[in-house]
Design a protein around this nucleic acid. Structure first.
Lengths: 352, 352
DNA sequence: CTGTTAGCGCTTTCAC
DNA sequence: GTGAAAGCGCTAACAG
């Protein structure tokens, strides 16, 4: 393969000339528009191949002076992570503007399937594409399918609805995220090869009905069951991502579980866990692993209350969502590698 | 802050009209070009503010039909990671073409300061910008400064030369990477709170003269010395990133060190370490942490030979390099958050 | 089915 | 110092 990229600045006009056709015909072939005979299409394709032509995106963008309206549906009263997503979307105002994309962030109670479904039903006509934090619920699945049916581009964000017809999911593999948390807890407590680690592991989760939390729980349980049989998983307690509720739940957990060695939080509100531990004088004595980097979790990582965080990058997700929706509406290809959202492990030492 | 982004599709023409000046004058002000009186400049700035104007990137790109030549200087006979970088750069051919950027990948012996310096000296005139894997050496620093002096945009890639005048560094914080590796080794061997972990830790490194390796070593040593005093660090052995040499070095290390509990490789060629361990029947008995995700390290992560990898994303680095150089030559702003290259921790469970 | 032509929004001469 | 006008490469009417 050559190390020399993009030598000659070819234009569609050059291709048209080489193929012996007009600019318009060359354009039709290159963009797969109808109304060209198979024979001439072949000539153009050959010329494109031979010359190595690639259209100049900026020119196409400019000429195709069409504009788009995107809706982004986020949970109302959102937690810190969702606020980060929203901020990162706003930070892209210039990027959107440069592509004639008008974006509206819509806040809804995504936990209420009826309200979310109603919100989605009101989108067609007003928007060309939508990104939403999905609830994996039959009613939502149907609402998503209706949008796609109606010709809208739909991507799920952070929490997926895989059985729907959404074109893309922008977020992490939450089973992998849960497994990663499980491995961190297991290994940090002591590697299996030196005799089994023992004790109880508490689990705090947001809500059983959010697919991402449920998947994390599943992945976490998988690893602990398979590889750390000496560890006992307590029944998950639901704090709805609320620090206050989490604090109360962990207080009780500490009181009820003398052999508690670790706590895993599948969702937000980790700060409540830190508070309960601090009260009991158990911070850094009990191994904690949680999700997402926020000012609160950053602090607790630095002071040792949390040993590790499993995280996803809200900036990457916001940018990926924008690129994917834009590619979908304008018929461009999406670069899979670039859009893959990684499950990150954050320790005190590699804090960004 | 509003949730409504980019409502009206404003053009420079609108701004010019609102300010009561011509299109050309508005353009001069918006782009900070000279030849405008302070008074009219103010009028234009006000109009821009009031209307909330942002230029359409595609149009600017098209009109400014200027082209660029970028050089990317990579180590010759590169290892797998460098090949990944090169592949990712090639994968961006369309992106470059869309911006009229011709890219040439230049291979040199970056370990030889004289040759690298000579290569760099030959760049001005032929290129507008350069990205290079730097050797932190006085001669290279001077060569970089000469390029910058000559008006070229220069960024370092993967390995930095911070005392030079390069405009940007595309790569990870290698001290943080080393610290992360240190924490993983320390914690995986057994948390300090349950009595100190003990034993010797072997260290394999590529070359003492590459800044990235030296920094990783430093960060690793820092954490082990401060937090895991029970662990004895062996003197680092240099295998020049070569699997064969690494295998021999580790064979000897195993023979000489009865209490060896872990091995850290700051560079490439981890597969040699795996081979030596397998021969001795010690795979998975000795904790291994290395760098970079390659087919070989992926395999060893999956089979348990390596417990974790500290990695950087070559795709992200290739794209970041491209964006940063383009921003530098075309006078655009660079989005710091997007260009920050993260120190990634990869376990078997969060393999991408 | 194919070709001609008028822009898209911005940059850049070249006059005034 | 300021303005008029000719493109940049591609798309989309509109003719033929």
């Amino acid at each position: 393969m050559s190390n020399q990229l993009n030598d000659a600045p070819l234009t569609l006009r050059d291709v048209a000339a080489a193929a012996g056709v007009s600019l318009a015909t060359a354009d039709r072939v290159v963009n797969g528009r109808p109304g060209v005979s198979a024979k001439t299409a072949l000539k153009v394709h050959e010329a494109v191949q031979r010359l190595g032509f690639r259209p100049l995106a900026a020119a196409a963008e400019l000429a195709r002076s069409r504009s788009w309206r995107f809706a982004v549906v986020l949970p109302s009263g959102g937690n810190r992570f969702m606020m980060d997503i929203a901020d990162n979307i706003r930070a892209q105002a210039d990027w959107f503007r440069a592509r004639r994309i008008a974006v509206e962030i819509v806040e809804t109670d995504v936990f209420d399937a009826d309200r979310l479904a109603a919100e989605l039903a009101g989108l067609p006509g007003r928007f060309d594409a939508v990104a939403l934090v999905a609830l994996d619920h039959p009613r939502i699945r149907a609402a998503i399918d209706d949008l796609v049916e109606g010709g809208m581009a739909v991507v799920t964000l952070v929490s997926d609805a895989p059985s729907s017809r959404r074109q893309h999911y922008v977020g992490i593999d939450n089973i992998a995220a849960g497994r990663t948390a499980g491995s961190l807890v297991g290994r940090f407590l002591g590697p299996p090869r030196n005799g089994e680690a023992g004790g109880s592991v508490g689990i705090v989760t947001g809500s059983g009905s959010l697919r991402d939390h449920a998947e994390r729980l599943f992945g976490f349980g998988q690893v602990l069951a398979e590889e750390y049989p000496g560890l006992t998983r307590l029944t998950p307690v639901e704090g709805r991502d609320d620090p206050g509720r989490n604090r109360d739940l962990v207080r009780r957990m500490l009181a009820d579980t003398p052999d508690l060695v670790a706590i895993y939080n599948t969702g937000e509100g980790s700060v409540g866990i830190g508070e309960a531990l601090a009260e009991a004088g158990l911070a850094r004595k009990i191994l904690c692993v949680g999700h997402e980097l926020t000012p609160a979790t950053r602090r607790m990582l630095l002071d040792g209350t949390f040993a590790a965080l499993v995280a996803q990058d809200p900036g990457h997700e916001a940018r990926s969502m924008a690129r994917v929706l834009h590619a979908l509406v304008s018929g461009q290809e999406i670069v899979a590698a670039q859009e893959h959202i990684r499950v990150q492990v954050i320790l005190r030492d590699n804090l960004p």
